[in-house]
Each structure stands twice: as structure tokens, then as C-alpha cells.
Design a protein around this nucleic acid. Structure first.
Length: 461
RNA sequence: CGGGGUGUAGCGCAGCUUGGCAGCGCGCUUCGUUCGGGACGAAGAGGCCGCCGGUUCAAAUCCGGCCACCCCGACCA
């Protein structure tokens, strides 16, 4: 179904992945955008060690219990057995906690808002390319606050302004936001916020999460400050992360039978220029166009490779480049070029991209402006298409049995008080999980005690 | 860990039942013709048939053992 050869191949260690340059460029673009948003939310980047003393994890009971089965443990170093085993970080709450304890003395030191871009390792039983690899790249944010409300508000800010907005406006994937049920919560958290997306096959993928950690880690690591009241208090911490899984989500949400489809705002290359043949006037025209697109701030690429036209076309389609501009003598003679949009085929495959709806012959004059508008249009169209497909597969139901039925092909939405934790357990036996709890209008819950919460349930990756 | 499957050229595979020169497609190299949707012709390069042992005049093929990987389930961003 997808252009797997362009993405990755199995690596030297079980369950790891090698990301080829094009796949990595997608990650770099995601990174840059998410990083800018994180900084806008006031956090700063830092870097902490890869190795964590095993005893650090043991300090938070739920945390170590949750992560123990999937730890990679280093027992030897420098040719000798280590006195204390080191774990390769599966996440870094404990390390950040240990150092926050040293750095925080007073309420004046708060909040501490840190983020790091790093690789982490979780020895999964069954890895899956991009979605669950043993080693993955991510960003993890760790913050400490004076009050519970402030911590909760910050987790919410990150969750909505960084993750949800990024997923929707850049990746063009509609997101469902909500809280995890206690059963699905992060090990060591008091509340987990999640951003859930539906893939092309109706299954759910968690795109990012934010956690309220309460004072669990503050107590475990003695992160205390002297408050305005002259008393010592434990801080309230949060953590939040997004990973290379988003690359997988992008592929599975938008990919069709012709390969990837990259939304224009993310695309490393937005427009590929394809000289149909290497006549000198064609090459001249194509060079001039490239300069104009560049001046307009469009990311374009000129493909002068000596492969046949058809091969080059298929190559860029597979990579999901949003717009292709074909420049050949026939059009050029009348001052025109051919513009083809990648998103238009709608996954029907085969020769559908040759269809006239995707293809348009337009004048050379004013091409850059026209393409800029077209890219905006494609961005919106891709979001709208994903939204329509998702909503067509969300069914409002009123009972457990109906939820099981709806969950087989898409998402079921039903009142949480109808399902409850017992119903959640029953769903699990049908391989359906509660993806999130939200308010009836789709917004984040205000409180776990709300009796009007609805839950979204479905199969998940 | 349980169930199923596969190891033969860079990739995808056939050959194994019934032992007898190591094959096919794609890709790669060179030359020519091509180039508006995955070109064509000609000539080439490329192999520890997963590993170890056994049977045999002869093993990719039969027998024994081992190893690796993939898929489904249990764990999860």
C-alpha cells in the first residue's frame, strides 16, 4: 500500500529502524514546527543523559512497575560489571526530577519549563515500523509548578497549542482530544491528556500525550520549594511527549495506493519542477521558474534526472510531493505549463492521477502566486477529506454491544457513565480500547467527576 | 511465551515432491535509439542456495541438528 522503501528498513537491533533521508526530512520539518511551538509556550531545551541508574526508576512505584518489562539494561562498562545497572532511558521523568530537586529552592525558581529532543528505548514485545519501534526519536517536556492548577493549565496549554494545533493545522489530521481512563493512564501520572487520530483503516493512533504527574515525582525525588507562606511544599510536575510515531501517523492517515501524500505546510518539497525533456529552452524556462518560486518562498525542487518522464513522475508521487509542474516544449510554445496536484486522486490508485481534475494547464505568468494559492487549497482539502472520512466512521451509540459493533470498523462514542470501567474491560476483550474521555462538545474534560463525559472507543495501533 | 510461515544474486521469487551444469522478473553497468505517465534493443556484471553434520558417484533438492527473520496474540508513545 505505501512506499515503504522510502521510509525505513529493519535495523541492526530488533525492532529499531533506519530512517532514510526523505523520511527523516519529514521528521525534521515536524521537529522544527513543534520546537517553535514549545518555545512559544515558554519552555527551553536542555539535554540529559542517556543512562539512568536503575535505582532512580525504583523511587516512583507506579513508574518502575509500568516500565520494568520494557527496559534495556546496561550491566557492563569499561570491561567490568557495573556496581549498579544503568537503564537506557525509556523516558526521563526520574532524571529531570533528580536535577529539579537540586535546582529548585524557592517559589521564585518556579515554574521550571524544560524540554529535550532525544532518543529513547523501550524493549517492546512486538515492534511496528514508525508506530512502536524499540528505539525512537522524540521530544519530552518536563515542568515543575507551584500549584496543581498551574501544572494542569500548563499541560493543557501544551496539549492544545503545541500538539493538537500542530496535528490539525500542519499535519492536516483531525484530532480528538481528551483524558485517558485510569486504565490507560501513563505510569506515574495522575491524569493523562491524549491527542487521538484516526488512520485510513479506521484504527486509532495516539499522536501525542501530556501528563499531570501530581506530586508523585516531587515526593519521590524531594523536589521542594519554600513557598510564599514560608513553608516547604512539593512542586507539581508535568511531562509531555511526541515522537517519530507522528511520521507513521502522517503516512497512515493520508497515504493512498499511489504512495504518500504530504500536506503542503509540512512538505520538505512543496513543488517539484519536471522538465519533460532536456531541450535548452525547456531547461532555461524551468530554471527561471525555480528562481521565481524561491523568491516567493515556496519550497521547490528541480528534477533534471535522466530517467524517463514517467519514472520521475511516479517517484515524486510516491514521495507525496503536493504539486508537480511539468514543463515541456508543447505547453511552453503557448506560454503555458502543466500543474498537477497530488491529493486529488483520493486513494483510488492506478492511473487516476492522470485524470483531468488533478491536472491543469496554466499560464506561465503569475505561476508562483497561483501555486501558493493552490498549496493552501491542498492543505485545506486534505484536512477536510480526513475529517469527513473520520466523522463517517464515528458512531454515537447507547450500549456496550453497539459500541463493540461500531468499534470494529471505526470509533464508537457513548456516555462514559453507560460504559464505565467494567464496560471498558469488556471492550478490551474485543480488542477495543477507550481512546479518550471528553466533554459532549469534544473539548477536554474539566473534572473526572463530570457525569456528562463521553468516551471514544475503537481499535488502536 | 503460544500459534503459523519463510530462509536461493541488491530486491521479489521459481526450482525441492521424483538428487544430475544455479534459474526467472525487477534493479545495476556499457553502447545505441528514446524521453508529454513506470521505454526498447544488444552486450555484460552479480551466488557460502541461512549454518553444521549425515546419506550418496553426485545434494539447493533426501535425513538429523542448530540459527535467523516474518506474520498473528499477550505488553506499549
Amino acid at each position: 500500500m505505501l512506499a515503504k522503501a522510502e521510509l525505513a528498513e529493519s535495523g541492526p537491533a530488533r525492532g529499531t529502524m533506519i530512517i532514510r533521508p526523505y523520511g527523516y526530512s519529514l521528521w525534521e520539518r515536524m521537529q522544527a514546527d513543534v520546537d517553535r511551538r514549545i518555545k512559544a509556550a515558554g519552555a527551553q531545551n536542555a539535554y540529559f543523559p542517556l543512562f539512568i541508574p536503575h535505582s532512580y526508576l525504583e523511587r516512583e512505584a507506579a513508574h518502575v512497575e509500568g516500565f520494568s518489562p520494557e527496559l534495556a539494561v546496561v550491566t557492563h562498562g569499561g570491561g567490568k560489571e557495573l556496581e549498579e545497572p544503568l537503564v537506557v532511558r525509556p523516558t526521563s521523568e526520574t532524571l529531570f526530577g533528580a536535577y529539579m530537586a537540586k535546582w529548585i529552592q524557592s517559589y521564585r525558581d518556579l515554574p521550571v519549563l524544560l524540554n529535550q529532543w532525544a532518543n529513547v528505548v523501550r524493549w517492546e514485545l512486538r515492534p511496528r515500523l514508525f508506530l512502536r519501534t524499540s528505539e525512537f526519536l522524540w521530544q519530552e517536556g518536563h515542568t515543575a509548578h507551584e500549584t496543581q492548577d498551574e501544572a494542569a493549565a500548563y499541560a493543557r496549554l501544551i496539549h492544545l497549542d503545541v500538539y493538537t494545533d500542530f496535528v490539525e493545522s500542519v499535519l492536516a489530521i483531525p484530532a480528538l482530544v481528551g483524558w485517558k481512563t485510569p486504565r490507560e493512564r501513563f505510569a506515574g501520572a495522575t491524569n493523562t491528556l491524549t491527542c487521538e487520530a484516526m488512520m485510513g483503516d479506521g484504527k486509532a493512533l495516539q499522536m501525542a500525550t501530556s501528563h499531570e504527574l501530581g506530586q508523585n515525582f516531587a515526593r519521590a525525588f524531594d523536589i521542594e520549594y519554600l513557598g510564599r507562606d514560608g513553608e516547604r511544599h512539593h512542586v507539581w510536575t508535568t511531562s509531555w511527549g511526541s515522537s517519530t510515531r507522528m511520521v507513521g501517523g502522517l503516512i497512515m492517515a493520508h497515504g493512498d495506493d499511489n504512495g504518500l501524500r504530504i500536506p503542503p505546510r509540512l512538505a520538505p518539497i512543496q513543488v517539484v519542477l519536471l522538465p519533460v525533456r532536456d531541450d535548452s529552452d525547456v531547461l532555461e524556462a524551468v530554471d527561471r521558474i525555480a528562481g521565481e518560486l524561491d523568491a516567493k518562498g515556496l519550497r521547490s525542487h528541480l528534477d533534471k534526472r535522466s530517467f524517463t518522464f514517467g519514472r520521475r513522475v511516479n517517484d515524486w508521487e510516491l514521495k507525496g510531493i503536493p504539486v508537480r509542474v511539468e514543463v515541456g516544449p508543447r505547453d511552453l510554445a503557448t506560454g503555458m505549463v502543466t500543474v498537477v496536484r497530488r491529493d486529488a486522486a483520493g486513494g483510488s490508485g492506478g492511473s487516476s492521477l492522470r485524470a483531468s481534475t488533478a491536472k491543469e494547464v496554466v499560464p506561465l505568468a503569475g505561476l508562483a502566486d497561483r501555486l501558493a494559492a493552490l498549496l493552501d487549497d491542498i492543505q485545506d482539502a486534505m484536512y477536510a477529506e480526513a475529517l469527513a472520512e473520520r466523522d463517517a466512521r464515528i458512531h454515537d451509540v447507547a450500549s456496550l454491544d453497539e459500541a463493540i459493533e461500531a468499534g470494529r470498523t471505526g470509533f464508537a462514542r457513548l456516555p462514559w457513565r453507560v460504559l464505565g470501567e467494567e464496560g471498558e474491560l469488556r471492550l478490551a476483550s474485543e480488542a477495543i480500547t477507550v481512546r479518550c474521555l471528553q466533554q459532549p462538545d469534544g473539548s477536554l474534560p474539566e473534572s473526572a467527576d463530570q457525569d456528562d463525559l463521553v468516551c471514544i472507543a475503537g481499535r488502536a495501533y
